[in-house]
Design a binder for these strands. Structure first.
Length: 470
DNA sequence: TGGCAGTTGCT
DNA sequence: GCAACTGCC
């Protein structure tokens, strides 16, 4: 007798633990896991370069994981709408399962797909595989999302977060002939040489993700509230790349955390993530347009040279430059630094936040459309629960507060490493002999600041004032 | 999930 | 001089 066959369509959920679609498929018969790589059709927010690199690593790793439990991964190129109907026919599958993606384009096309497939006498099921609870579940009223985080957080029904599904130990694959592409065929690796450090900074396995998480709970969770803001102390989890690719599940983290003391600050971050998904789900256009209409009117100073200086980490502000270089070198940035460099781009340089969002999207290996959008709209002040427009970070003050001994700066901006910590946050104020002694010539070995912060701050306030009075 | 200028009230 | 505080952007 033929066993029932289920196709599981994968998308940023490369794990065996707490995988609703895969788990349910495994329990109903033979499973055909497929990954369909939607080639760039110039669509906005298709995967950025860094995340492509990471996807390449993760696909290899997940192939191996599936192999170890008796499964196999089939890889295709194209769109799900073209490929799935053909697969269903060729494999004689009776069901198609997937965990929902909330990327607006993908979500839309999957809904359309589900409609089309339902004509084929198939069982179609979608599951929640990303967030703690589906984005529509904690709203003010039906279809009315929260506009401020704190009420969302307070209303969030922690007791309703479902238990994680057990890890899959064994799966059955039908004996079929079905050609799959190799990971290499997807051509995900960058053409140019990437910084060497990237190759060694991240290990793309589910086991590693879980190991990092457990280590985090044991060693760092207790001080997470304070240490997560100090980049040199690395008090944060560094799990975002794994979370973004679904190598670890938010739900399983959530339940595991409850057994530890001092878990509140971290769980709050997980709920921020759910909130970002609610934001993306209800405001899909927010990826490119300011949520508050007024902010469309801001007069930017879209200066390409300054944008380049920001991207390259040569703004002359050590803390900013350290961050931008870390981003380029590792595909990662601590949240505090993300906020400060983002504020600098938007407020000090008056460059549209969308350009910053695109740069982050291309360079972060943990790039996540919901988090990226919410973060940039927050900084720009144009989101719902946004930072007030007058909140402008002072790059030097933030540097002194969160990198007091300059360790982070020295790591990423080595040309300043011999400068005493007294001057390292604002080298333009250092006396000549201190600079000479450290072997620094401003404007030559390290740039002069590309803007005067005090003047830039005033200018930003003026520009925001203009729209306020409209 | 700020910063700044102006002020007070100390040394 | 300076911390601590205040009101405002």
């Amino acid at each position: 007798m033929n066993r029932r066959r289920t196709i599981v369509m994968l998308n940023n959920d490369f794990r065996l633990h707490d995988h609703p679609a895969l788990y349910n498929a495994v329990n109903s018969g033979d499973v055909i896991p497929v990954f369909i790589y939607e080639e760039e059709d110039q669509e906005k927010w298709s995967i950025g370069a860094a995340k492509k690199w990471w996807l390449h690593q993760c696909l290899h790793s997940f192939q191996q994981s599936l192999h170890e439990v008796g499964g196999k991964l089939w890889i295709f190129k194209g769109t799900a709408n073209e490929i799935l109907p053909r697969l269903i026919e060729e494999t004689r599958a009776e069901a198609v399962y997937w965990n929902r993606s909330y990327h607006p384009e993908i979500y839309k096309s999957h809904i359309k797909l589900a409609k089309e497939l339902s004509n084929h006498n198939l069982e179609i099921q979608t599951f929640e595989g990303i967030t703690l609870l589906p984005p529509w579940s904690t709203t003010r009223k039906e279809h009315e999302p929260y506009r401020v985080f704190t009420p969302f957080y307070k209303a969030f029904p922690m007791k309703s977060v479902p238990q994680a599904y057990p890890s899959i130990k064994r799966m059955d694959t039908p004996n079929i002939t079905l050609n799959s592409l190799m990971v290499e065929d997807l051509d995900l690796l960058p053409k140019e040489k990437w910084p060497d450090f990237l190759e060694t900074a991240w290990e793309p396995t589910e086991e590693k993700a879980i190991q990092i998480f457990k280590h985090f709970c044991e060693e760092k969770l207790g001080h997470y509230g304070e240490d997560r803001d100090i980049p040199s102390r690395e008090g944060f989890s560094k799990l975002s790349p794994y979370l973004a690719m679904g190598m670890i599940s938010a739900r399983s983290m959530f339940h595991y955390l409850l057994d530890y003391r001092n878990h509140t600050a971290f769980i709050r971050q997980l709920i921020w993530r759910d909130y970002a998904y609610q934001f993306l789900y209800y405001f899909p256009h927010s990826t490119t347009l300011p949520l508050q209409e007024l902010f469309k009117e801001i007069r930017w100073n879209d200066d390409e040279d300054r944008f380049d200086a920001w991207k390259k980490g040569s703004t002359g502000f050590p803390f900013i430059d350290a961050g931008m270089r870390e981003l380029w070198g590792t595909g990662y940035l601590p949240n505090r630094v993300r906020m400060v460099v983002a504020s600098f781009l938007v407020k000090d340089l008056l460059i549209p936040w969308q350009k910053g969002a695109e740069w982050f999207w291309d360079t972060l290996i943990d790039a996540d459309l919901a988090n990226n959008t919410m973060g940039w709209q927050w900084v720009a002040g144009s989101g719902v629960d946004a930072s007030p427009y007058f909140r402008i970070f002072n790059p030097a003050t933030q540097s002194k507060r969160f990198d007091p001994d300059g360790a982070y700066i020295k790591k990423w901006v080595p040309e300043l490493k011999d400068l005493p910590k007294k001057y390292i946050h604002e080298p333009w104020n250092a006396p000549d002999d201190a600079l000479a002694k450290a072997g620094i010539t401003l404007g030559k070995t390290y740039p002069l600041p590309i803007v005067d912060h005090a003047a830039a701050r005033k200018r930003a306030l003026d520009r925001y004032e203009e729209i306020k009075n409209k």
